[in-house]
Design a protein around this nucleic acid. Structure first.
Lengths: 259, 259
DNA sequence: CAGGAGTACGGTACTCCGTACCAAGGAAAG
DNA sequence: CTTTCCTTGGTACGGAGTACCGTACTCCTG
């Protein structure tokens, strides 16, 4: 993105007029770009057209955005910075809860964007280079979460499988909820609220372990459910009792008829 | 990729010589490309240079590959097809085991490539457009696995969170192991064997639930490990029992002292 | 045999993105 | 006032990717 103008412009109060004009050119460019993309598609819209529609030169376009694709992804660095700030604000070490709250900030950002986020989603789906960029931004979030979760899982770089799995699940869950919201034909505060609730439930599922199994697995009163893979002989017990698992093993084994 | 030549060439036996020459030009181009990429970098290598080094015209380069990036990702569609074939071969419905075995095919493909895979990895790390492409291919695998796992989780399209979480975890685990292998300074059969073992262990971790927790969570002898999320009181215990989970509930409750 | 259809290939021209550079204009500082 | 700094637009260029044409070759049919 434009690294040459915004920082110096924002640190020089006497150039506040040029700050506003610089932001204004960027905003005009972005608005023009999204309008033209919507009308005629990303690939068929040239940077020259965008610049002309915004009343600036093409050089100014490339001053405001590094590449044509950057127009579509305006806020990634900013959101990532907020995620990092939230993680940095963790009291001792970053917990899974910290990570899910940081992830919630990402979701909240989309919800706040509303129709713009939806328009962007429609656009991205049609252009492979944009889809690639989107996928890469997902990978970046996952990496940040993995690194942050190492303290919690007690792992170190290079040997952090659990952190990786958790980060992968958190991101997958988030994206799942986000996609449903982006695709929703309805809009409004209750749709947003439902997305938040679904997100919280998804994160709870991650936190409780990925209890998987066929549909006939009985959801039991043990919190996360019990399930047996079809014929694989596994019974998964999720305890929310705080009791020492090792002390319970004999009783559990007996209950399962294992001894 | 080249959709115009291979099908007709392979259906016309009398043009088998042109088939082999076509594949040969493609192979020569790829070999030349990888050599030049290694020597001078991806961006600094032009398609014209690659073509010249392969002894063909630039037009032929673009007949063989849709884009310059396609050179670097030769086998994605083929590996994805093998993954799909494995999933299609599942007896009744695709289980988590089927998915992890299909994922193992992907890993096996990289292991079989050996140094080529490692060279590609080094290249991809240096070029953002290649990283984006790589990330997108990961997303495609995850989507295939999610769709395949719905039967097992008993979910339907649009309401498939558990399948999504599992797919996310499987892919994250795979990538974790693969990355470690790609980065390894050592090579050889024992390194490959260790990657396979690590992969199997990662998949077992996924299958047993994402057992998370701080380092002082007790890793027990229960196979998948036990752990308590920090403060959330969850403990996941995996035991092998073929009995109906619903029938076990009363005994489990009693063993847990819940009734 | 000749002619036509199909295929593969190389070269050329072109558009567009992205980079580099220069000149002009305006604002700020001394 | 002059000088310096900043912003902007225009131009030129290289490279990726597209489109097209001409050439050469093979194969089939009349």
């Amino acid at each position: 993105m434009s690294e040459t103008t915004s920082p110096s412009a924002s640190t020089a109060p006497s150039t506040s007029s040029s700050t506003s004009s610089s932001a204004s050119a960027r905003d005009r460019l972005r608005a023009a770009a999204f309008r033209l993309f919507e009308e005629q598609g990303f690939e068929a819209t040239t940077t020259g057209e965008i610049a002309a529609a915004a009343g600036v030169g093409r050089t100014t376009f490339f001053r405001a955005f590094g590449t044509k694709e950057d127009v579509v992804f305006p806020d990634h660095d900013e959101v990532l910075a907020r995620v990092n700030a939230r993680l940095d604000a963790a009291l001792d070490r970053v917990t899974l809860t910290d990570v899910t709250e940081a992830t919630g900030l990402v979701l909240g950002h989309y919800l706040a964007e509303g129709d713009l986020a939806r328009a962007r989603y429609r656009l991205i789906r049609q252009v492979s280079s944009l889809r690639d960029r989107e996928a890469a931004s997902t990978v970046r979030y996952q990496r940040v979460f993995r690194d942050a979760l190492r303290g919690w899982t007690g792992e170190e770089a290079g040997s952090d499988l659990r952190a990786e799995l958790l980060a992968g699940a958190v991101v997958a869950g988030h994206n799942h909820i986000l996609r449903a919201w982006l695709r929703s034909e309805e809009t409004g505060p209750e749709v947003d609220a439902r997305a938040r609730r679904d997100f919280a439930a998804a994160m709870a599922t991650v936190a409780s372990g990925l209890v998987a199994g066929p549909a006939d697995g009985a959801g039991g009163g043990t919190g996360g459910g019990t399930g047996g893979g079809a014929g694989d002989g596994s019974t998964v017990v999720v305890l929310r009792s705080g009791q020492d698992p090792a002390a319970l093993l004999p009783a559990l084994r007996q209950a399962l008829g294992l001894e």
